[in-house]
């Protein structure tokens, strides 16, 4: 019955025989679709740019009009993601913890920005915030202009990014053990102390993830912004719009160079989300 120790047994290979069928077929299909639809076209942008000299590339991506568009795009996206992080946590909290009439409707409504085509959102927001619109008309006497200013872009991006934080925080909040809060209460913490020192830190990872997702979405957003921004070069022209403009002028090299910059930023953000998740859920962090 006794056999030699594993170390002594020569030549152990793992025989990869899979019990469930269809691995080759499904993996093949997946890779084929992925390559043809996503990877190959995306690589086209990088390869096209590789044909440019460094000076040409730098010229395309650092002209004053382009730099102004970066500043606006990232600034508005950051501000919108920050607003969503703040309000998103509150909305998620209210949806999970409080019973109130219409809770289910509000919960369903949060998905509206996912479901509503961006062009529709764009014209609706513009109609509302234009000086003649319902809300724009109210703000006009106060000297606040929303449509056709950076503030309008912020409004559109806040709308677009609204679901991200809510939908990442909500499940975490639902699964948060009530014992944590009860323990804090028995240790003499007031309710607000418990919220600030126990609950909010537990929601931080999800909030950061939602923030980054909203930021990434905001940076690339086009449809909802083009209507409300007014598209004035150097003032209210976002980077995706600039790409479209260059394309319409048949400046493929300029459009592609800008696209590469944006792709790098987007991939960095996507990678950042992955790192964030891994860091927050890493065993070392939980060991401490």
């Amino acid at each position: 019955m006794r056999t030699p120790h594993p170390e002594l047994s020569p030549n152990l290979r793992t025989r990869r025989r899979r019990v469930l069928p269809g691995f080759g077929l499904t993996l093949g299909t997946t890779l084929l679709f992925l390559s043809l639809i996503v990877l190959l076209p995306l690589s086209a942008a990088f390869i096209r740019t590789a044909g440019l000299s460094w000076e040409e590339f730098w010229g395309h991506v650092s002209s004053p009009r382009v730099v102004a568009s970066y500043r606006l795009t990232f600034g508005a996206a950051l501000a919108a993601a920050a607003a969503n992080a703040f309000f998103g946590v509150i909305v998620a909290w209210v949806l999970v913890r409080y019973e109130f009439p219409g809770r289910k409707i509000v919960d369903a409504l949060v998905d509206l920005p996912f479901a509503l085509p961006t062009a529709v959102a764009g014209i609706a927001l513009t109609a509302l915030y234009a000086p003649t619109g319902w809300i724009g008309g109210l703000l006009e006497p106060l000297g606040i202009k929303v449509a056709y200013t950076p503030l309008g872009i912020w409004v559109a991006l806040t709308f677009i990014g609204l679901p991200f934080v809510v939908r990442t925080v909500q499940p975490v909040l639902e699964e948060l053990e009530p014992e944590l809060e009860e323990a804090a209460a028995t240790l003499g913490a007031t309710r607000t102390q418990t919220l600030r020192r126990v609950v909010l830190p537990a929601l931080l990872p999800a909030t950061c993830t939602g923030f980054t997702l909203a930021l990434a979405r905001g940076i690339g957003e086009y449809g909802s912004v083009v209507f409300i921004s007014g598209n004035m070069p150097l003032r209210t022209e976002i980077t995706p719009l600039l790409i479209v403009t260059k394309l319409e002028q048949y400046d493929y090299a300029g459009a592609t160079a800008l696209a590469v910059v944006m792709l790098v930023v987007s991939f960095a953000l996507l990678f950042g989300v992955q790192l964030l998740q891994r860091w927050f859920f890493s065993p070392e962090r939980h060991g401490r």
């Binding site: 990434a216 940076i219 690339g220 790409i243 479209v244 696209a259 996507l270």
Partner: peptide
């Protein structure tokens, strides 16, 4: 992660890459 990639790409760029592949100058 690669499957999620299209979500990280601006829709404008999604259009652009097909122009680079199949457009008149592509």
């Amino acid at each position: 992660t690669l499957i999620d990639l299209p979500f990280a790409v601006s829709p404008v760029i999604a259009g652009l890459v097909y122009v680079l592949m199949f457009g008149a100058q592509g």
